[in-house]
Design a protein around this nucleic acid. Structure first.
Length: 122
RNA sequence: CAAGUUGACCGGGCGAUCGCGGAGCGACAAUGUUUAGCUCUGAGGAAAGUCCGCGCUCCACAGAGCACGGUGCUGGCUAACGGCCAGGCGGAGCGAUCCGACGGAAUAGCGCCACAGAGAAGCAUAUUGCCGGCCCGGACCACCGGGCCGGCGAGGGUGAAACGGCGGUGUAAGAGACCACCGGCGUCCCUGGCGACAGGGGCGGCCAGGCAAACCCCACCGGGAGCAAGGUCAAGCAGGCGCGAUGGAGUGGCUCGCUCGGCGCCGGGUAGACUGCGCGAGGCGGCAGGUAACUGCCGUCCCAGAUAGAUGAUCGCCGCUCUCGUAUCGAGAGAACAGAACGCGGCUUACAGGCCGGCUUGGAUG
RNA sequence: CGGGGCGUGGCGCAGUUUGGCUAGCGCGCUACAAUGGGGUUGUAGAGGCCCUGGGUUCAAGUCCCAGCGCCCCGA
């Protein structure tokens, strides 16, 4: 997502799920594919901390993406507790949030993304 | 060997899989925000803070004066600088070395120096004192105590700072009152140096406090804005009111000059694409000039370009640090500060750990 | 990218202009008095290395430099 108006629309009529590390906001977009947005505000710290949080969320979403329903705008907002967390914690948080929002096509296997990676390395 | 001081450098390495940004080629398909695939490439020493200086772009051709701001020993380097190099002076240290906004207060002005102290900036002062004369009291004298008048700036004391220092002459006691030497000030001359300045000599007056990092004076520098600069294209909208040539806009604090030819307020619309945008005051190596900063020549290399903003995830081996154990080995844990946004030269600040060199002082040995 | 402001007891602010004497004010806090008890009131008191580190000065909350944190404005 790269328009200010898209984010504004989601803030107006999107639905949200909360987690101590991340807040999920989502809504249907009437397209054939998903669009994603990541927000890491000044509250998290300076550039290194904010970049780190955004990259971990991006990687977690990339692993889940093949198993998600198409046609949604999905925005992940980092909270201050995410600073210093390892990838496993962020991945678990994203999987948990997407499962609670019922965006998975298949049953949300715990650590399904991890199994995907296991098949990649043999 | 130990302690110290200083300069330069590194900022884990190699490989595999899955992803992301950029450039080029591009089968199939056929003009799509083209795609699969292949090749190359993708954060730092500070990319940071944004404290200075430039390039670049626009504002007339970048102009004048004032105001304002900055810099402040000398010479050099540079595109430029508040940076760097070399030197001078002052200070700290045994020393290597380090630190210094380091022009001006007899060039002028408005000024400040609290408290304490007798007196705090000009020819200042008499508290404790020292000395002389007179008077009174005690006493055989020497002398002691008190009062009045006068002289004095040496000693004590206050303070951050008290109007030169040691010695002598002199005197009732003293004092640059006078003398020699020294320090410091002003001025003239000689020598060395481009210069700051240093060394030496003559003369003068006897001695002149500090603060300009509050204002100020002097010298030098600075036109304004900034890549959201600027340029091209596309999309979209609706006008209304007021002022209007000794005026308005470009123009920013003022005046002049120059140029342009309506301007202001309210309301309405759009905030998309391309370009600027990376061959550069560029990196590395060599040679030459220069004490050095730096410069010139030759060779060689192409080395990030995102735009809700690309560097991430997982694993193997090696290296480093710590802990534990069955201890030339094994297991576990850890590894700083920090992320390009037009580019560059500096400065400043943050930083785990490591490596190399110079110099100084002290000790031991030969 | 450019510009401006703030940081002083627990809280809100003065003082910074032109450096100096014990850094003040209001609310709050503690103790005592007054009341049967509480509030109001009165009296007394505690609480500050003036955001941090350097520098100038005899002397810095104040002047200068660097840093940290927060807030605001313009494009």
């Amino acid at each position: 997502m790269r328009r200010m108006s898209d984010f504004a629309r989601l803030r107006e009529c999107g639905r949200t799920q909360r987690h101590p590390l991340i807040i999920l906001s989502y809504a249907e977009n009437n397209l054939e594919h998903n669009r994603y947005g990541f927000i890491a505000g000044r509250r998290l710290g300076k550039a290194v901390k904010r970049n780190r949080a955004r990259r971990l969320m991006r990687e977690a979403v990339r692993c889940c993406h093949p198993n998600l329903h198409p046609g949604y705008d999905i925005v992940l907002i980092a909270r201050t507790a995410i600073v210093g967390q390892p990838f496993e914690a962020v991945d678990a948080a994203v999987t948990n949030l997407l499962a609670r929002a019922q965006l998975f096509t298949t049953a949300p296997v715990p650590g399904g993304a991890a199994g995907d990676r296991a098949s990649d390395s043999y």
